[in-house]
Structure formats: C-alpha cells, structure tokens
Write a protein that binds this DNA or RNA. Structure first.
Length: 794
DNA sequence: CTTGCATTTTTTTTT
DNA sequence: AAAATGCAAG
C-alpha cells in the first residue's frame, strides 16, 4: 500500500520517441491514431466491442516504451477492480513486469483511499479511518432518523440516504446545502439536521462513506494546494475508462489533477521552477452505455468533453470485433430510438451470423426452463459453460433461474447478488476487526456488543452510550469504565471482558495482521463455538462462513507480507463480489445487466424483457429513465458474440403473488426479421396443437451451429412462424390468452394444453389473480393463473 | 434479556 | 416468498 512519491521525477523525463510498430500491429487506423496521438487531451468514443481495452493498454505501453513517461507518472482509472486487474495484466504483458511497477491502475475509489490514507492527518482524520459501505451508512442514518423522530415527518432511510449520496456526488456539504435551503419548510430543516448529524457521526467515527472517498479527496486538493501540487507533479498521464459513468465529484477530481502547477505552489521541481503544464488526459467512453445515472453519473461529462477541454482531440471507434452483424443490427436499431445522441453505427466484418432467438414463456419458471434447455443443447454442441451467460434486470430474478438450473444439474454461478461480505455473521466478524483497527467507530462496537450473546441488550447499550456522550469519550472507551455504571454484576463483567479482549488484541496497533487478530478474537470471544453450539440449523453454515473468512485473511496475509489489518479492511470494502470472477471456472454466469457491462460471452440470454422490469417500473417517473433502461438493454445485447436469446414470461411472480407481464416496448424496436420467435409450450398449445417441449426446443436444430458461417442467408432460415407472431402482436397490444371469468373450485376436472388432465385441489386469490392448484395425472402438481392458463374445464 | 410468533414491508441497478 | 420489524410471554 505504500508507494514512492517523488515530485522531482518529471525533471528527468526522457526525450520522447515514437510508438513501436509492434504495439500497432493489428490495429485499424482509428485505433492506431488513438494509441499514437499526443496532445493535452484526448476523447476516445469507443462503441461496444470496439477494442478499447487494447487501445488503452497499448497507449500506456507506448508511453512507457518510448520513454515519454515513467510508470509512476501514469494514473489509469477504471470502474471495477476487475477491469483494473485486467488492464494491469495486459500492460505487463506488453512492457514486462518491471516496467509496469509503480503505475497506478485502480478504481476511483481505490485511488482516493490511497491518497486519503496518506494525507489523512493533513485534515483531521486518523490514518486508520475505516470505510462505511452502503449498508453501514444506511444503518447509521436509520439510527439518526429514529433518534430525531424524523420518521414522523415521513422520512425513510432510503430517501435520506439517497439524497445525501446525491448531494455528496455534487460536492455539496451541510453548509453549502444549508445556504440554499428553504427554512420555512420543516421537512427541509429536518433533512438538514439528519445530514448534519450523519456528517458529524462519520467524522467522530473516523470513517468515510463511499461518496466521501471521492468528495473528500477533491476537498483535500482544493483546501491544500501544496498537496494537490504533489499529485499533479506525480501524475503526468491520466487515463479514465468508462468516462460516461463519472459523476460530478469524479469529474472534479480529474479536473483538479489536470491543472497546471503554478508558480506559487510548492514543492518546486529540481530546477527550482514552480510551473508545470497540465497532465495529459485521455478519456474513453460511450454515451450509449451510460447506465449509472441513478448513482449520479452525469452523461454531460462526456458529451461536453470537447467544450471542457478546448484543445482536445476526438477519435471514434465504430468497428466492432465482437458480435455478428445481426446482433449489431439489433443493437443499433434499439439504441437509435434514444434521441439526443450523436449517431453512431457499429459495424463488423464477421458476417450476419445466427438470428436472435426469442421466447415467450408461460411463467418465469417456464422461461428459466427454456434457458436451461438451450444451454444444454449448446453445451452438447461444444460450447463451454463459461462462454454462456444469463442476464436479468433485478437480482430477485435469480431465484427461478437457480431452481431450474439446480434441477437441470447445470453448473452455474451468480455474480454480484447477495455477497459473502453482506452476510450477517461475516459483518459481525468484520465488525470485530473494525473495532480493533478503528476504536473510534461506535457502529462496529455496537454490532459486536452482544455477539455472541453476553446478555448485553438495548438498555445496557443505551447506558454505555449516554455515559460516553456525557464524558465525551468513545463508546469503546466507555466499555472499559463499565464498573463506574450501575449495571448488574454479570453484565458489568461481560462488558469489561469484551473491552479487555479488544484492548489486548489491539495492542499491536498498526502492525496488526488480519489473520492473527481474527483467530485470536474468535477464540477469546467464543464466536464460532457459540454458533456450533446453537440449535438453529442455519448456524452450522454460518460457522463455516466465518471459517471461510479466516481462510480469506490467511490468504491475504500470505499474499501480502506487509499487509496490515487496515489494508485488509480497505480491500474488503472496495472489492465487490463481481470483481473476483474467474473465467476458468467452467460455469454458466448469471448476473444483472449492470454487472454485465464490460464483459462478453459467446452466447447471451437476456431474460425478463418485460414492461415494468425492463424498463423497470421504478424508472418510469425518473426523467431520462426509459432512455437509460434502453441503454441497459443495449449493453446487454452487445455483450453477445455469436448467439443472442431474448426471453420473457407472460406471468411473473413478484412480492409473493403472480402478475400478468407485458412484453417490453424495446422488443418492438428490434427489426422483426432479426428475431426467430420460438413458441412457448403454453402459447403454442393455446391454439390447440400439443407439442412436447423437448421436441420444440430442437425443432430447427439446423441453425444451431456455432461459428456457423455468414453464408447462411436470411432467406434460408425457417420463416418466423406467423402463428407466434400473431400471438406476440396480441401481447403487445395488451392482450394475452383470456379465459374470461372462468371460475374453478376444488374438485373441478380440467384439461391443460401441456400437462393433460388434472383435478383442482385448491383455489386461492381473487378475481383475475385467482390461482388454481391442480394435481395432474401425469405432470404432477402445478399452480396456474386461472385467467390466462391454457386450460379448459371438463 | 431472550425467544417465539404475528405483522409488515420489500425489489432496481452498485463503487 | 423472504426478510425485517414489533410485541408479548417467560
């Protein structure tokens, strides 16, 4: 985590040479120019799959090889740790391990933590600050709202935390917000108070939240010009990936780093000069892939780049090296519906490839079954599981997919989703580590107070807290003074015992190493033993999870011999589960559309392409919401190399009951001749014909081959079955199969188009949502939405 | 203070 | 359907 910061290096800048031919091999003219161009600022507009990572890595390699820059003068920013790791690897492959030492290739957040850790004492934070993730800050806000009785004003935690996050992304603090506040509005006064308390509590806890990491770094640079000058001297070449997803704070950070160093700033360089030109800035992005407006990303940053940086150069990369023309045509058609964008058309020389396969399932499970079937077929044909991925809009959609995948024995893994570090028992164990590393943090101490159970409940906690407040000491210190409070003898002993354990383990201070600390803590507190002794059957798994965490700390200690406890905590806070995706695993990947950005697969399934899901219901009111959802769909489409599947369901289970789902408006934006609609069993049979699903799935197996040549003419494909299209058109206009007011009661015999004859056992729900549970003679027990199921009463 | 049961709320996406 | 919250009994 330490690095050498030498402000005098620029004076030794070697004379620039030209970029070696080897680095340019295989690049098209635009890519080549993007690698070779030299100037103050460069915008690379990189369409999906246009080889931007190659360009970026070669550009860095070129700077190093031509000796225009030392490695330590390069700062490359990516959005995920995974992207950073990949970029580092590829640069290393180009210039060698040694030449790549000293570069900063990291996320905004990691880079800022490094800077803040180094400079923390400059502005009143201890070096040992910890980082609150979103769950932590929500917990804090929840506490504050409760404390202030703000919920009676109608404040919810998510409203308040959302608003605070938004303000921080705009570099607003309590003071600046208060200046513009409307003091006649009691709601606003209350919010201001929440914001004030939150800011104050974070500072007292010696903690930053995610947004602070960026915002406080900007503040640091602005308030301490000599600190800013240090980093401006160091970083002479700044490269930012996914620039369309930067928010205002991140933009401001880049601006601060790319200011010229002026005469008055210290330190001077070796010749005693103060002045130094602004660092060169390269940004790469694609406004069509901007999908993070909800967390403050401002698309204007990229749209107005040329205005912001007046002498900048713009290079467009439009040739796509990833997908077939059919997939690109679909993507182009969809995204062209977003007005207010500079037109950009991806093209390829790969050829048209297979058509997109469409599927409408009867239910989410039916859809999942289709996905599983198709994956099995492709796997038989030689496509590796790791080359296939299933995308969805919301994490909740994984449930049906997982159920079917398990039943079908398909190897899969879920990226993102409920992460290891979000599990309660892991958070508890981490809270122990935080309590040792950062004794000022009361949230962590509060969390472990009664884990494992020691009889310290809410009353005791409040007593300790108020004692801490009265004496202006931390909660952690108050624990040590438990004997000065009128607590019961048992409880006093428990509190003092905990304080003693924390104190003892914390003796090593900065030299503490995570595995040693954790094992000692777990042993002394009996944390794992308590889980093992519990009669809750889930606690066994929890104990194993904690063991797993111990293994992670040991691994960390092995890999980084100098790594301290604080380093470990930082890494855990900043590394998301999606970052450790390991492509060698041989499993199908399941992930949200957001997680999918930047990745690519041979075959991609876009599931749940329905109204209220994509676009999501919540986005409907947001200005620019539907356009952003369209970009999300676009991102999903463009992840596919050879095969793309889009699927939806006619009914979708949500909040525990079943709702009718409509096809997404975006489906109509894909030219009809690009999609080969397969029928869902339910739909096919709703017109009378009965086709076993297995037969259906392989019906036109002729068109399944991978790498199938571009020679397959569109006319040679089986015509899209008109029946299906008619059905689909019906769906678009809002009609689904409708049994009218068909009423069923327990005991009725029915015939289902797929499942055959059966007897109704139970009917639940009212009106159009009533559901019949049916025991079929051959197909087993099923739950059917009476209004639209392909059934008739016998 | 803990446990067990009933009631309510939740689901957008993430560094 | 699952998780979080609230409440009463022990």
């Amino acid at each position: 985590m330490t690095f050498v910061l030498d402000p005098f290096e620029p004076a030794e800048q070697p004379p620039g040479g030209s970029v070696a031919d080897a680095l340019l091999a295989g690049l098209n003219p635009q890519q080549r120019e993007a690698v070779e161009y030299r100037g103050p600022s460069l915008l690379i507009v990189a369409g999906a799959g246009s080889g931007k990572t190659s360009v970026l890595t070669r550009r860095i390699a070129g700077l190093l090889q031509s000796r225009e820059a030392w490695p330590s003068q390069i700062l490359a920013i990516t959005f995920t740790n995974k992207a950073a790791a990949e970029m580092r690897e590829r640069v290393q492959a180009l210039v060698g391990l040694e030449q790549a030492q000293g570069m900063w290739i990291s996320t905004f957040h990691s880079a800022c933590v490094r800077i803040l850790r180094r400079e923390a004492e400059q502005f009143g934070f201890a070096k040992s600050f910890t980082i609150y993730d979103s769950a932590d800050s929500r917990a804090l806000i929840k506490r504050i709202i409760k404390d202030l009785d703000a919920d009676t004003f109608g404040f919810t935690v998510s409203q308040a935390s959302g608003k605070i996050s938004k303000l921080k992304n705009e570099l607003q603090d309590v003071e600046s917000y208060a200046r513009g506040a409307n003091f006649s509005d009691p709601n606003e006064i209350m919010f201001l108070e929440i914001f004030r308390r939150y800011t104050q509590d974070l500072r007292r806890a010696n903690a930053f939240d995610f947004d602070d990491l960026i915002g406080q770094t900007v503040y640091l640079f602005r308030a301490f010009p000599q600190v800013a000058a240090l980093y401006r001297r160091r970083f002479r070449h700044i490269l930012v990936d996914e620039y369309q997803d930067t928010n205002h704070a991140q933009y401001a950070l880049i601006r601060e780093l790319t200011r010229p160093v002026t005469q008055g700033d210290l330190p001077l360089d070796r010749q005693g000069r103060g002045h130094l030109d602004a660092a060169s800035l390269t940004v790469v992005g694609d406004s069509d892939q901007s999908i993070y407006a909800f967390r403050g990303a401002d698309i204007r940053n990229i749209v107005e780049f040329e205005r912001d940086f007046p002498h900048s150069k713009t290079i467009l990369l439009e040739q796509n090296y990833r997908s077939t023309q059919n997939i690109l045509d679909a993507a182009n058609a969809v995204i062209s519906n977003n007005f207010d964008r500079t037109d950009k058309k991806l093209f390829t020389t790969i050829g048209s490839g297979e058509k997109i396969t469409g599927f409408t399932g009867y239910s989410g499970h039916d859809e999942a079954q289709f996905v599983a079937n198709e994956i099995a077929v492709m796997h038989e044909q030689g496509v590796a599981y790791k080359d296939m991925a299933v995308f969805y809009r919301t994490n909740a959609q994984t449930r049906a997919l997982e159920e079917i995948f398990i039943r079908s024995a398909l190897p899969y893994r879920v990226l993102g989703g409920t992460k290891f570090y979000e599990r309660a028992e892991i958070k508890d164990a981490m809270a122990y580590l935080i309590s040792v590393a950062n004794p000022a943090d009361p949230m962590a101490v509060r969390r472990i107070l009664n884990v494992p159970r020691r009889g310290i409940g809410g009353v005791t906690e409040a007593t300790l807290q108020s004692y801490a407040d009265r004496n202006d000491i931390s909660l952690r210190e108050a624990l040590r003074k438990a004997d000065e409070l009128a607590l019961g003898p048992k409880i006093t002993a428990a509190v003092l015992g905990l304080a003693a354990i924390l104190d003892e383990v914390g003796l090593d201070g900065d030299a503490s190493r995570p595995a040693d600390v954790l094992t000692t803590l777990l042993e002394k507190t009996g944390f794992i033993d308590a889980l093992r002794a519990s009669r809750d059957p889930q606690d066994e798994a929890r104990a194993e999870n904690v063991e797993e965490l111990v293994a992670v700390t040991k691994e960390f200690q092995k890999n980084s011999s100098t790594g301290t406890l604080i380093d470990f905590l930082t890494e855990v806070s900043l590394v998301a589960a999606a970052d450790d995706l390991d492509d060698s695993s041989g499993t199908v990947s399941l992930m949200t559309l957001h997680t999918a950005k930047g990745l690519e697969y041979e075959a991609v399934f876009l599931t749940g392409v329905e109204e209220d899901l994509l676009p999501h219901r919540m986005s409907a009111n947001e200005p620019g919401g539907p356009a952003e959802e369209r970009r999300l769909f676009y991102v999903g489409i463009t992840r596919a190399r050879r095969r793309l599947f889009v699927s939806l369901a006619m009914t979708r289970a949500q909040f525990g009951d079943v709702n009718v789902a409509m096809p997404s408006r975006y489906l109509q934006e894909i030219p009809a001749d690009l999609i080969d609609w397969k029928q869902s069993p339910g739909m096919a049979t709703s017109r009378g014909g009965t086709q076993p699903r297995a037969l259906n799935a392989r019906r036109d197996g002729s068109s399944w081959g991978f790498g199938a040549s571009a020679a397959r003419e569109p006319g040679g494909l089986p015509p899209a079955p008109p029946r299906v299209k008619a059905e689909w058109t019906n769906l678009v206009t809002g009609k689904v199969r409708d049994n009218g007011d068909l009423v069923l009661v327990a005991g009725d015999r029915i015939r289902h188009a797929d499942f055959g004859d059966g007897r109704v056992t139970v009917v639940t729900g009212e009106g159009p949502k009533s559901v019949a549970e049916v025991q079929f003679e051959t197909a087993g027990r099923k739950r059917l939405l009476i209004k639209i199921a392909p059934i008739e009463k016998l």
